[in-house]
């Protein structure tokens, strides 16, 4: 039995310690907002936060989350998370929508760590999240809207 915090609440899961967090979330806990895309940390669809950092849940064994805090798309309701979702809506970002949970989780961790990233930093951060529909131009526009709303650095 592994104990951790899931979207702000205490959670236990009875899983093979080697099982990736992705499958524990989806199959055992019924949280299907975190998506399966590749299984080898190549596409970012399964991105969640582990103690506030973006991680690929398909490559993270549940044994590694004992005592830690996990946030999934279902729990992304910080001010920053809401600002990102509002910007995604303003630009009608999603097409099929499948990758967007991962895009939002990745973007929110990036901006929580650095509210004013450079374009090169955004490129480096966001290139791990594939969108096969090609919503990148709108993600870019939405991100820049949110960044513009952030307090400027010192």
């Amino acid at each position: 039995m592994i104990s951790f915090t899931l979207n702000g609440k205490k959670q236990q899961v009875d899983a093979d310690p080697a099982m990736p967090l992705l499958w524990a979330l989806r199959d055992l806990l019924g949280l299907t907002g975190t998506k399966f895309g590749c299984g080898i940390a190549q596409c970012g669809a399964c991105t969640v936060h582990l103690d506030g950092q973006a991680v690929r849940s398909c490559a993270l064994p549940v044994s590694a989350i004992s005592g830690k805090a996990i946030t999934t798309i279902e729990g992304l309701n910080s001010d920053l998370g809401e600002a990102l979702k509002a910007a995604w809506k303003a630009h009608n970002v999603p097409q099929c929508g499948y990758c967007q949970a991962g895009q939002l989780m990745n973007a929110s961790a990036m901006l929580a760590n650095n509210p004013n990233p450079s374009d090169a930093q955004i490129d480096a951060n966001m290139q791990g999240n594939i969108c096969r529909c090609g919503t990148y131009p709108r993600i870019k526009a939405a991100l820049h809207d949110v960044i513009a709303q952030q307090p400027a650095e010192g």
Partner: peptide, 23 residues
Amino acid sequence: KGLAPVDIDDMLDGSAVYGQDVQ
């Protein structure tokens, strides 16, 4: 009219159901 996609809210909060999500 450029109406917003009807599923946009569900796509952004993780509640949209895809084939992989059926339980």
